[in-house]
Design a binder for these strands. Structure first.
Length: 501
RNA sequence: GCUCGUGUAGUGUAGUUCGGUCCAUCAUGACGGACUCUCGAUCCGUCGACCCGGGUUCAAAUCCCGGCACGAGCACCA
């Protein structure tokens, strides 16, 4: 019975259906898994804090949610979670920035766009409902005091206040009669729950800072778990896709939904993403760096904001396929920027014009039968991009100092050889397999600046470039050297920003 | 401490629900080659992985038990 185990079974199967044992090469399932439970329609949401523009990290949420909305004919809600005016105060300009970032990345505006701060009347209504139905209470413990209760599972002395007293204290809080830290609204769950994070979690706190959108209208503000839970219900959100650090948030919110008799949306999670060759930037650290002058602004090339990436020349579709290929696994991943850059290169290479840029120029004289002009294609595989025309009358060319060898080929122009300290033209046709280098006719060189990050610094390197009509905003490929974006292009100033190899 | 989650090639993934079609997919990377007037593009090839230990079974990446590693939550941040 045991002998020839798998082989035995294989033979048995072969007797029944010979084709069943043929090996079929496995294939990879392409694309994201479709959403489940979509019969009632699909409403998704992306909910950033408007304390700055969107970062590369945020873009995962935009891309994945938008992808599902398109595939399930659903709607996407852009919701500004701006209910904290103290720890992560909203930036008034960020609301528009985020909408622009969203539109740049997805090619369209969100179906619905709301600010939590403007929805306060709704949240307040539910806060009152929570209290009057006995599902919440005003807690006057300090956070340290409550922590002890949470850990020891012993209810705090405020837990059993009568509803009337809770409502009375609530109205005092609403009217500014209490100071931040004096009191908080908690959702009554169960102090003996095994997961400490879920025990009587906080829903509202007192904050009296001016809110950039609604001013000084409110003395109390809901916390994420409450505000988000209510708003998801109000918007009819069907699926939530969030980081797995918010798993306990889901569990807290389900407890609240149970109180109200609602059904919680389907929830999917993804793990953390860190970029290898890039430090971790939180929106608040970026903001500090900008305020203190370390960075030039939110679009500084050293910052991982979408603003910066757009400015540097990333194609939105590269970011899109990068995230959809990664999918929504719960694994924490550390990726290299090279992976993104590889996707971006593939997107931009077919349309990027080739331009010769020389960082460390050295001029050489060519003697012999030098043609009067040179014609080089802007793109080796895409003739529709046209040609570059340069005069070579003087017979002088500029090349990269490191390319200075006795036998070289000036790309698309001529083979030259050093004979007794004198470069002579051997042939205009490619005559052997000597090194091919990029060059510029001395008749048409222009000064140029290449801006690139170097560690934490941003350096401006002088260089020369061929005299060609480029337009600002175009991404070019510097021959043999990688991609760059044209930032300025006039007789006064020619500036390129380094993108990637 | 309590709770939750995750472990597949260098990196990122497919497959794990329902064990055999998996001597494990695809991309990127590295290496080699072809082609090309860029170190670009294109094409071909090679390399390389189921966290560990038991168990169940004819058969385990997949099921069970036990470890280990990493991450997260227990904020009056989101």
């Amino acid at each position: 019975m045991n002998e020839n185990g798998a082989d035995h079974v294989r033979r048995e199967i072969e007797n029944i259906d010979p084709s069943a044992v043929n090996r079929v090469r496995q294939e990879k399932n392409a694309g994201l898994k479709p959403l489940e439970n979509t019969e009632g329609g699909v409403v998704l949401r992306f909910a950033p804090n408007p304390n700055g523009p969107l970062s590369l990290g945020h873009s995962r949420g935009v891309v994945i949610n938008k992808h599902y909305v398109e595939n399930h004919d659903g709607k996407i809600v852009l919701r500004f979670d701006d209910t904290d005016t103290v720890v992560k105060p909203p930036l008034v300009e960020a609301y528009d920035w985020i909408i622009e970032d969203f539109e740049w990345l997805t090619g369209s505006k969100p179906d619905i766009s709301i600010k939590a701060s403007e929805r306060m009347p709704i949240y307040l209504k539910y806060a009152e409902k929570l209290l009057s139905e006995g599902y919440g209470y005003v807690c006057e413990c300090s956070s340290d005091e409550f922590k002890k209760h949470r850990m020891s599972m012993v209810p705090c002395p405020h837990r059993n206040r009568p509803v009337e007293e809770n409502l009375k204290l609530w109205s005092i809080m609403l009217n500014g009669g209490k100071e931040p830290g004096d009191a908080i609204i908690r959702v009554k769950t169960d102090m003996t729950l095994p997961n400490p994070a879920l025990r009587d979690w906080p829903a509202w706190r007192i904050q009296k800072n001016i809110h950039p959108v609604v001013g000084d209208l409110y003395n109390v503000w809901p916390l994420l778990d409450f505000q988000s839970a209510i708003e998801d219900h109000e918007q009819g959100v069907t699926h939530i896709i969030r980081g797995k650090d918010l798993m306990d948030s889901t569990r807290k919110q389900i407890l609240l939904y149970d109180h109200f008799g609602w059904t919680y949306p389907e929830t999917l999670y993804w793990g953390r993403v860190s970029i290898h060759d890039q430090g971790s930037f939180s929106t608040s650290t970026m903001r500090e760096g900008i305020d203190s002058g370390v960075y030039d602004g939110w679009d500084d090339p050293r910052l991982p904001t979408l603003m910066s990436m757009r400015k540097r020349g990333y194609h939105p579709n590269a970011i899109k396929s990068f995230w959809t290929e990664m999918g929504i696994t719960q694994k924490d991943v550390a990726i290299s920027l090279d992976s993104l850059n590889a996707v971006n290169s593939a997107k931009i290479d077919p349309t990027s014009r080739r331009i010769s840029v020389i960082m460390d120029p050295v001029e050489i004289d060519i003697t012999g039968d030098v043609p009067e002009k040179a014609v080089l294609p802007f793109h080796p595989d895409n003739q529709s991009l046209g040609n570059r025309h340069h005069s070579t009358k003087t017979g002088r060319v500029v090349i990269e100092r490191v390319d200075l060898e006795d036998e070289i080929r000036l790309k698309d122009f001529a083979d030259i050889s050093n004979v007794e300290n004198n470069y002579q033209i051997i042939s205009t046709k490619k005559s052997d397999d000597r090194k091919i280098i990029n060059w510029i006719s001395a008749d048409s060189i222009k000064d140029c600046t290449l801006v690139m990050p170097d560690g934490v610094d941003l350096v401006r390197k002088g260089c020369v470039v061929e005299d060609t009509e480029l337009f600002v905003g175009e991404v070019i490929q510097m021959e043999r050297n990688g991609f760059a974006k044209v930032m300025e292009w006039s007789d006064d100033s020619r500036v390129l920003h380094w993108l990637h190899r």
